[in-house]
Nucleic acid binder design. Structure first.
Lengths: 351, 351
DNA sequence: GCAGCCACTGAATGCGCATTCACAATTTTA
DNA sequence: TAAAATTGTGAATGCGCATTCAGTGGCTGC
């Protein structure tokens, strides 16, 4: 049934016949940098245009063992951060003649199935953004010689390359900001408890506020499931009952949860930010910068991270294993919104 | 250089040898519904597992002329509506064993390049969400026998299948709501002036408010580029200068522009919705339902639209051209937010 | 007991292209 | 001018699998 298609498609043999050359020459005409005389190439291209021929990438992939397809596995498209990342990957890969095979994983599931599918298609590389990965699969990708890269997460496996933001450093910076703004009672909204990202962001924050031994900071941690709804639920649960007491500040380890917090606290308690309570997020998603939020956060340099990832990919292609894993932590950038109380600038100017 | 990979990969011949069968039998073991005895199949699968074999989909695609890949071309990932659509496509296609090759098109560009790339990969179908398409390309897809479907847009070409929301009807409904709420001076924020979507939504709206001959409605139209920033710019421009006068209501033909309007008007004039000015959007994106917006809108049934699209795809596979194009307009659903003045309910209950 | 049928299997072939190899047609060098 | 290097080309081959075709063996029914 699907069979008729192949007869409809023009092949390089037909072009070769029309152009009066061999099929090999047609192939060369469409291969950048191939050895072919200019006049023949022109003749081939003219014949190809006349017949409406375009190369069959599938056949080409089979013959050359390179598909020009990159698999991008996205953990959670409900989080705009991953949407923006996927967008950046598609845009940049498209610009360099590659293609993106997209997979999504529902929250909390392993991405093993997606990786396996990607392997079947012999993709040139696999990029995993969040989502856990089993060791078996990693060894299968190694067996297949297909590079696999982690984006925005790290792994205990040191042979796995990963590109991520400096989550620890970013957390630290936010901790400092929150402390300097005077918060001494802080609620931390964690994301995925398994994930390295949430863990690092919390650890950096804690270090920063505990460093300041001048005055103790009381910290409480709850889980927000890395999602808007999860955050709202967690906040609702935490502050249920009559007359809840609020912390001085909330640190949500990603922006989408911070937004959930704000919405929930505004709706139920009509709280003002930062007057009643301060809040910071992490990621720098567009939604956080909408006028009703103006969230103070650490902006992840998505573009730089994506470019770095693609750079690594290219490097792997060149010389197998010479890539240093430590070069792949990129600093985030503090974004001053209006959800943290402004202190007098003098203090922060001390070198 | 990329060459070594192929030697690493286990092939069906090796599995065949280990299992003591022919390669053809291995192929059958991995083909659902193929004629193969149970014991042989078990033996093959065991051997495959032992060798870590998995079929090469590229080779399989070449041999069978079906890739199980669907190209999804997304016009504008800055608009959350398209993000949600892409997400839905990926999720549903993944569930049925298909794969998504994603392309994005920058605003206003034609999607010809992406279509051509998709053709090269011999995809099973091409889905285009927004973005214009040249006639040449359409005929090429026909020549290649690859179905092409429009999502959320229509075309003058009647042979092109398209699935979309009832934009005209939705616009009409919003017009009615706005009129009934008492608005007599309305500003319409158009999207892409070329696109059928914006046009239909405006036309329906106009019909509804002009229908009510009781009292004339003054309508003004400006362009918002279908984007958040575009809407903010348009609003800023429109209401610059001292003491601008505002309309009773704004109709943004999509939610993301409505949000841009709200942000701009809040920030510069501290307007309240719906007290100072009413506003409605179209799409029903998640952002519009955040607590600070609660946008009144028409929600596009993305899931239903996506499922319908995939259904059409399946139908095309079965029996060439028997698909009726008119069955593909799906009604949207009015979502009552809090950006339109509530009227007493009595009036609306009149049959 | 034999024709006929069915379920299954393996050998062979081709999908469309890239690539290797050998060779012809140049051009360069000795 | 002969030899060597260079460039360009076509024939042949294989990438890994699905599929067709021609069986083989077991079964049923008469």
């Amino acid at each position: 049934m699907a069979r008729k298609r192949q007869s409809q498609r023009v092949t390089s043999y037909e072009v070769a016949k029309l152009a009066g050359v061999s099929q090999a020459t047609v192939s060369r005409a469409f291969t950048a940098g191939a050895q072919i005389a200019k006049d023949k190439k022109d003749r081939v291209l003219a014949a190809a245009k006349q017949l409406n021929y375009y190369p069959n990438s599938i056949a080409s992939s089979l013959a050359s063992a390179s598909t020009n397809i990159i698999a991008v596995i996205v953990g959670n498209l409900d989080n705009p951060f991953y949407v923006e990342s996927l967008h950046a990957f598609i845009t940049h890969l498209q610009a360099s003649g590659k293609h993106v095979l997209s997979f999504t994983i529902s929250q909390g599931k392993a991405c093993d199935d997606a990786v396996l599918e990607a392997l079947k298609y012999n993709v040139d590389a696999i990029i995993v953004t969040s989502a856990p990965l089993s060791n078996d699969l990693v060894s299968m990708t190694k067996g297949a010689g297909i590079p696999i890269l982690l984006f925005n997460r790290s792994s205990d496996d040191p042979t796995l390359l990963s590109v991520r933001c400096d989550n620890f450093g970013g957390g630290q910076e936010l901790g400092k900001v929150i402390y300097d703004a005077g918060a001494r009672k802080v609620l931390i909204l964690r994301g995925d408890p398994q994930g390295s990202t949430s863990r690092d962001r919390v650890a950096g924050f804690r270090l920063a506020v505990q460093d300041k031994a001048i005055e103790a900071v009381r910290i409480e941690e709850i889980d927000g499931n890395s999602s808007y709804d999860g955050a709202r639920d967690a906040i609702r649960e935490r502050f249920k009952g009559p007359n809840p007491t609020f912390p001085d500040a909330i640190y949500a380890v990603n922006d989408i949860m911070a937004i959930g917090c704000i919405d929930e606290l505004r709706e139920r308690f009509d709280l003002k930010f930062p007057e009643d309570i301060m809040i910071v997020g992490f990621d720098g998603i567009r939604e956080g910068q909408l006028q009703p939020y103006k969230l103070t956060t650490i902006r992840q340099p998505i573009n730089a991270m994506v470019l770095k990832t693609l750079e690594l990919l290219a490097a792997i292609g060149d010389e197998e294993d010479t890539v240093k894993a430590d070069s792949c932590v990129i600093p985030g950038r503090f974004f001053e919104g209006s959800t943290v109380t402004q202190m007098e600038q003098v203090g922060t100017k001390i070198p």
